[in-house]
Design a protein around this nucleic acid. Sequence first.
DNA 1: ACGACAGTTCGGTGCCCACCGAAGCATCGT
DNA 2: ACGATGCTTCGGTGGGCACCGAACTGTCGT
Lengths: 230, 230
Amino acid sequence: MISAADLAGLAALLADETRAGICLALLDGRAWTASELAAHAGVAPSTATGHLHRLVEGGLLVQRRQGRHRYVQLADPSVAQLLEDLAARFEPRPARTGGLRAATASAALRRGRTCYDHLAGRLGVTVTEAMIGRGLLDSVGFALTPAGRSWLIELLGWDPAQPRPGRRPLVRACLDWTERREHLGGLVGAKLCERLLGNGWVVRIGSGRAVRLTAAGDAALRDRLGITVG
Amino acid sequence: MISAADLAGLAALLADETRAGICLALLDGRAWTASELAAHAGVAPSTATGHLHRLVEGGLLVQRRQGRHRYVQLADPSVAQLLEDLAARFEPRPARTGGLRAATASAALRRGRTCYDHLAGRLGVTVTEAMIGRGLLDSVGFALTPAGRSWLIELLGWDPAQPRPGRRPLVRACLDWTERREHLGGLVGAKLCERLLGNGWVVRIGSGRAVRLTAAGDAALRDRLGITVG
DNA sequence: ACGACAGTTCGGTGCCCACCGAAGCATCGT
DNA sequence: ACGATGCTTCGGTGGGCACCGAACTGTCGT
């Protein structure tokens, strides 16, 4: 039997805006360093340290030390699920929750969705793996190859090698909670997603994060990556 | 996109032990009065008032005024679901979550489970309706009839009419979130559940709240209530 | 009309905790 | 060996909020 103190303790972990922001940032599946999170949340490193301790202590996060860095990420998919369930209370409510509607919505999310600003779900994973298979992404380091660079220039009209202002990494492996496999995040992932949406190859279903591949998108992906996403 | 402030605000509603206790109490599906909840949580009525305001304001609870009483209950099934999801983090973890296992576990919960200390799910609802059909429970007031009293004495060896210490009501209509129908709670519901488990008519599946009717239990319910629970 | 009761509003008190800066401790690059 | 960097520990400060009791409003029973 769960006690009120247990529940309150768990909720208290998320009841602080800074900690909530940290958890939401980690929802992208990456492992972040303590300073990255401190900057993201807009607090001093010492403050972030305390929050990360509490979150790890509370079982929501796990950490891994690597040299002078402390990498932290969500403890397991159930934590991500929990956060998404909580976040779902703020999405414009679907006409009717429960029953068939909920089941199909959930299936749609598994098929394809956006993870912040890039593609996730089966669609995201399939695209990513096709890019690796075609030698556009390096399979070990997850880095953009020269072929990948030309491919992007051709598709986006944007050269990933050009100098850029922010510190956001070009490519980044983002772990997908439903597929349990990595997909493409980072600046390239975002640009790619933006273009797919802009071209009408992928459209949002309703107002949530679920997306669907259009007929045009299906043809385009088959043409450019040789894949079909069931 | 959900903001950290939104998430923190929602979590803060549950981050207080008193409010968490109130929500857990309401998880039994009933509408409680403000004083009942104050007593349950062990705080002054004025304190409870404040908490209830915040919970209603936050959309977790809805209220209904009736004379000088203020009845409050969980806003909708999704809130109950959320609370159960949070509580699930404290249950001993099932061998492996996700996929088929999760689906069957969820189906098992729909079939039968315990709601605090009494039966819920399809099993709980079926038993309750059979008791009403046989005139053991009054269909309108949900009160124990004389026939119901003898039935309980025969089954439990315990007379519900005898004086008892606590203030817990004998019977209580408890709304089930999956079945959307009322089932038997209160002291009688608890005693009944205790006996079914004690007789081996119902066994717990694993360590969670899901329960299963055994062959002996199936025969016993058919014999005493004339029902079969698919 | 009367007290009894459910609930509310309103100050006042005290605790918890998020925050920071400064100092300390590892690790990395040169 | 050196400073730079990432992180941590440690007081100290301030704000938010959970709590109560007292006084008040509205409803119910007699």
